[in-house]
């Protein structure tokens, strides 16, 4: 991966040249455009309904109220359940934690086996795995329903965990394989001469050297699984719908008066987890998506 921390374009000329003003002007306008939706979400969620009906989406709140947040979290209705998004939030947490751990453990071991213990045929399966990442999920949705039903997991939390593990595998395996391949092979050889076996080398040599990539994988998975909608809606049942599905059901429900402020509070609440991870992890997030994006 190229180090993206050093700007290397042509040298800028004088501070306030016309070109510079245009450059920064453009960037500021673009940045404002990108920031706008976040701003709109925040201001709308802090207004009362009368104020929303009077003004427009961009006007800042005159009278700040947190009522929409409270309502979105604990009172908003989906169907007959009126206990708010909190239910979806905790569902998502329950789905997230095992999915992230399981997918990362399995993918890291896969990557390690592929990088250091290549056996005949391993590359064939790996190629299928990577190509599999390009297959539209839609093609595999229904057979997986059947498989999960046969296993007695359809509609359960663990079924969804399994689905996330499977579909996270290509990208994570690639990530780990590339990382482990970059670790000097001599370390691996030295450990073998020292009598360490498959698991010994994994736990005592590779793992301690690979914390950054585990963090990257974790960011990738937390964001991806939290944001998932399709698998959640297909492989779980309404009581354990993840937050995104519940959010969509709240906002796009056809019954009752539209409460835009509650909707935006709910939307913001759902986006809060990945946003927090994004703003906290910064560079690692960028590294993760860049590593995930630049395949091969």
């Amino acid at each position: 991966m190229v180090d993206a921390s050093q700007p290397r374009g042509p040298k800028p000329r004088k501070r306030l040249s016309r070109g510079n003003i245009m450059l920064y002007g453009t960037l500021i306008v673009v940045a404002m455009y990108y920031a706008l939706p976040l701003y709109v979400m925040i201001v709308t969620s802090l207004k009362g309904m009368p104020e929303i009906r009077m003004g427009n989406v961009f006007s800042p709140p005159v009278e700040i109220t947190f009522q929409p947040w409270v309502k979105a979290w604990s009172e908003a209705c989906t169907g007959i359940n009126c206990d708010g998004l909190s239910r979806g939030f905790w569902n998502s947490v329950q789905i997230l934690v095992p999915s992230v751990f399981l997918s990362i453990i399995i993918a890291s071991i896969n990557g390690y086996a592929l990088a250091n213990w290549r056996f005949k045929g391993a590359d064939v399966f790996f190629t299928i795995l990577i190509l599999g990442a390009f297959i539209p999920y839609q093609v595999m949705l229904y057979p997986i329903v059947i498989i999960l039903r046969e296993m007695g997991l359809y509609g359960s939390l663990w079924g969804l965990v399994l689905v996330h593990t499977v579909f996270g595998m290509p990208i994570l395996t690639l990530l780990f394989r590339n990382y482990f391949t970059a670790i000097p092979e001599e370390l691996f050889k030295a450990a073998r001469v020292d009598g360490a076996g498959f698991w010994g080398i994994y736990f005592r040599i590779m793992l301690p050297m690979s914390l950054p990539i585990f963090v990257v994988a974790m960011i990738l998975q937390v964001t991806g699984i939290w944001n998932d909608f399709l698998f959640g809606v297909i492989y779980t049942r309404p009581e354990i719908y993840p937050m995104t599905v519940q959010l969509n059901n709240i906002v796009n429900s056809v019954q009752g008066v539209k409460e835009y402020n509650v909707n935006m509070a709910a939307t913001l609440l759902t986006g809060l987890v990945p946003l927090t991870i994004y703003f906290v992890s910064g560079k690692l997030f960028v590294r993760g998506i860049a590593a995930g994006a630049v395949k091969g």
Binding site: L36, P37, V40, M41, T44, V57, T223, W226, N227, D228, F229, T244, L247, N248, V251, Y260, N263, M264, T267, T270, G271, P274, L275, I277, Y278, F285
Partner: peptide, 14 residues
């Protein structure tokens, strides 16, 4: 970092 659901809903509003 945001899901398509969140993206869709906020732009629906804007």
């Amino acid at each position: 970092a945001l899901s398509f659901i969140v993206t869709g809903l906020v732009w629906q509003w804007i």
